[in-house]
Amino acid sequence: MNTDPGPRPAAWAIGMRLPEFEPDPALWPRIQVARHRQVVRRRWRHAGGLFALVAALGLSFTMLPQGESVDSAGEEMAKLQQRSSTLERDWLASMAESTSARVDPRLELIDHNLQQAYDDMASPSELIPLWRKRSQAMQEVIDRGSVRSITRI
């Protein structure tokens, strides 16, 4: 196929000027109205986006205390474990001076429950009371000068 238009365009077009067309005078006002609507629509959309952002921030703000409680729980459990470890060192020091170290059934039960809780992937909220109980029980044992009832976990 011959795709070269050659001189034909000039042949049909020379002297046959195509008409110019005048748009409806109301067209530009219509475009301005459409533009105004477009701008307003975008503002609402932006406002909606902003509202959604604020709502999301508000939601995260309300959820923040829960996050903090998780962090607090972790911190509290770490403190209890540290406390328990310190008490245990105190107990070991006192036990070195004793000749009759015996297992305290209450501590034995607490340690058993702790081990079970860890095996069950327990949450901090379940572990904290057990660690707190262990520290209290350990403190009581030390305070009593008793070395009868200690187990190590």
Binding site: W12, P19, F21
Partner: peptide, 16 residues
Amino acid sequence: HSQPAVEQSVDAWSLL
């Protein structure tokens, strides 16, 4: 559908 705006353009416009 449209009519040419200028009389001398009729042929070209009609053809197009």
